[in-house]
Design a protein around this nucleic acid. Structure first.
Length: 599
RNA sequence: GGCCCCGUAGCGCAGUUGGUUAGCGCGUCGCCCUGUCACGGCGAAGGCCGCGGGUUCGAGUCCCGUCGGGGUCGCCA
């Protein structure tokens, strides 16, 4: 039996040879007593010439075929550049219909210019995945995981599986819960990440662990967020931040080189969190374009314009938390009033009161409603301080520092897109390092309180190791995020491995010994037995694949994704359960005993 | 939980100030053409205008509610 060839693999060198093709009828045309049948498989399309009218007649789109035939050169001028194989065709000697197809619910052909609604695509996902673009995406994803496993093996990492039925731990997101028939009233949780298990593996002395792990978080959806997602999870012992980053750099370089032929310049640049916030207003900056933010807080310290002045004597938030910043839109002064108003709507849709702006006209004179509220001196130096040229528009945001920076960061990206400043061919990787350890929490009585930004096992930077607990607002952590074109594709940290230091973190975030024991007792127990210094990282596989595939939605790189409401139109999940299932799984039962985390 | 956009034939869409029989393209089915390749020509079938209520002489169109899809803020340590 001849081996079946892939339709997309036929080349002029195959002319004269006999091949077997298996695939689906993408299209049929009849001419001159023969049928021209485009046969498609996951690798591409080949044109098959069927001369036997009796055989050709019943062929319809998406019939599944096996064709045996001879490869022939196409007549001159008949090659179709739209097909992946434009130079050869297969003259069929036998055509076997393996199965027939009902009329299609939506067009599958690649060149169908009109997009198809996502719901109908998901309902018939098995047809959607026949589309060449989708097949290409899934092939790409398989290549990604193949390369990951290859690189991790070369780097001597062990692929170790961790439980999917595990204990609910108070991590950031809501857990998906699973009732336990054997213990009515008690529940497993699906892991939000293998974080605690991989640290236990370090205590176990495995030294280098990785896993392509499914993670589960019961939170609302986004274009780049699903309730279950895949991450490359890595942990290693006796390492520092640079060791972990180095592994990831090797991996990213290999992925981009093998899949896109792009050479990632190494090492990937480092940016501190503080610098990222100062220059871009966000901890995942898009470095494909400039338009960096400008700080105007000092500049307007004594301004007569109330909006740009820190609220005096307000309780709770001190002036230190007040920020005025700006971003310049090149050529933005020529925007019509309607466009400038549209920016206000844009800002309000993001929860801001508006977006102040100053226009710099051709003579360098300032225009717009804000300008007349400023002092003579402020107007004189404004454009220069912002770095604005004649014809530019300067957008301002003022208020609580995190709010103002958040609005400016979004405005910067919007400016980049509207002004065409973003090079969509570019790949700008950056490590964002030295994130703060703690975030202030607003408490009803105004007493200072703190929460861990990353997770409570993240180690402080070396020169703060001794006293971070006495100045939590300044404490920086050994955390690192890998950012690509404004998307966070991974993040990790060096962990705390000494109980004394761990206790100081718990003290800062107000976690009592009892609470810590009940929440992570099993991890703290393990850390009593000589845990090695260790650290790790996790990369979001779905986002990574979406970026490599050039799509905005991770649904395009997931075979069977869910809709925004968490449903799957194909299977109908989630669905109600029967009364018998309720009784058997004990979902309504109360726990009949308590199960402490630690002995 | 908030906000924005979209639900009209299998698919993609149009439908004007509320007005008679709701259109277009693709697809499907039939016939014709016959080295075509997003072929071409002629014809036909195909509609609970998401659902429920309201306003009106009259609703695809206006109002309220609801369901579904997409986006976004909150959320996602």
């Amino acid at each position: 039996m001849m081996r079946t060839r892939e339709a997309g693999s036929l080349r002029p060198g195959d002319v004269g040879s006999t091949v077997v093709l298996a695939g689906w009828v993408a299209r049929r045309r009849d001419h001159g007593g023969v049928a021209f049948v485009d046969v498609r498989d996951a690798s591409g399309v080949a044109q098959v010439v069927v001369r036997d009218e009796e055989v050709a007649r019943p062929l319809r789109s998406e019939y599944c075929l096996r064709v045996v035939g001879e490869v022939a050169a196409r007549p001159a001028g008949n090659a179709n550049p739209n097909l992946e194989t434009g130079e050869v065709e297969v003259i069929a000697s036998t055509v076997e219909v393996l199965s027939e197809s009902a009329p299609l619910p939506f067009p599958i052909e690649e060149h169908s210019a009109t997009p198809v609604g996502e719901e109908v695509r998901l309902k018939y996902r098995y047809l959607d995945l026949r589309r060449p673009d989708m097949a290409r995406n899934l092939r790409l994803r398989a290549d990604v995981t193949r390369i990951i496993r290859s690189v991790m093996a070369e780097q001597r990492f062990l692929d170790i599986e961790t439980p999917y039925l595990t204990r609910s731990t108070p991590e950031g997101a809501r857990d998906f819960l699973v009732p336990v028939r054997l213990q009515p009233g008690s529940w497993y949780a699906l892991p939000q990440s293998p974080q605690l298990f991989k640290q236990l593996l370090m205590v176990a002395g495995l030294e280098r662990y990785f896993q392509i792990a499914r993670c589960f978080r019961d939170e609302d959806f986004r274009a780049d967020r699903q309730p279950e997602f895949s991450q490359l999870d890595i942990e290693m012992s006796f390492c520092d931040s640079g060791d972990v980053q180095g592994i990831i750099e090797v991996l990213l370089e290999r992925l981009w080189r093998e899949l896109l032929g792009y050479s990632v310049p190494l090492p990937i640049p480092r940016l501190t969190y503080a610098e990222a916030m100062r220059r871009f207003g966000i901890d995942r900056p898009d470095l494909r374009f400039g338009c960096e933010l400008v700080d105007f807080t000092e500049y307007f310290a004594d301004t007569p314009f109330r909006i740009f002045r820190a609220p005096a004597g307000s309780t709770g938030e001190g002036p230190a938390d007040f920020h005025v910043g700006a971003v310049v839109m090149p050529g933005g002064a020529s925007q019509a009033r309607k466009e400038l108003d549209a920016w206000q709507d844009w800002a309000r849709s993001r929860g801001a009161r508006g977006l102040a702006y100053v226009l710099v006209d051709a003579d360098g004179e300032l225009g717009g409603p804000v300008a007349k509220n400023l002092s003579e001196a402020e107007r004189a130096g404004l454009a220069a301080h912002a770095g604005a040229q004649s014809g530019d528009c300067i957008f301002f945001a003022a208020g609580k520092r995190s709010d103002a920076l958040g609005l400016l960061a979004a405005a910067r990206v919007e400016v980049g897109e509207r002004c065409g400043l973003i090079d969509h061919e570019a790949w700008e990787f950056v490590w964002v390092v030295d994130a703060p350890m703690f975030d202030p929490v607003e408490t009803p009585d105004g007493t200072p309180a703190w929460t861990a930004i990353h997770h409570p096992f993240t180690a402080p930077v070396d020169d703060m190791a001794a006293d971070f607990h006495s100045r939590p607002g300044e404490a920086l952590s050994k955390a690192y995020d890998i950012v690509l074109n404004g998307s966070e594709i991974g993040g990790g940290s060096i962990r705390i491995h000494r109980s004394e230091m761990q206790q100081r973190v718990f003290d800062v975030i107000g976690l009592s010994r009892d609470e810590a024991t009940s929440q992570f007792g099993f991890l703290l127990d393990a850390f009593a037995y000589g845990p090695p210094p260790h650290g790790g990282i996790a990369l979001g596989i779905d986002r990574l694949c979406a970026l490599l595939a050039g799509t905005d939605s991770i649904r395009d790189v997931i075979a069977f994704p869910k809709t925004a409401s968490g449903g799957d139109p194909l299977t109908g999940a989630p669905s109600p359960i029967t009364a018998a299932q309720r009784a058997e799984t004990g979902v309504d039962a109360r726990p009949n005993h308590s199960s402490p985390a630690s002995s």
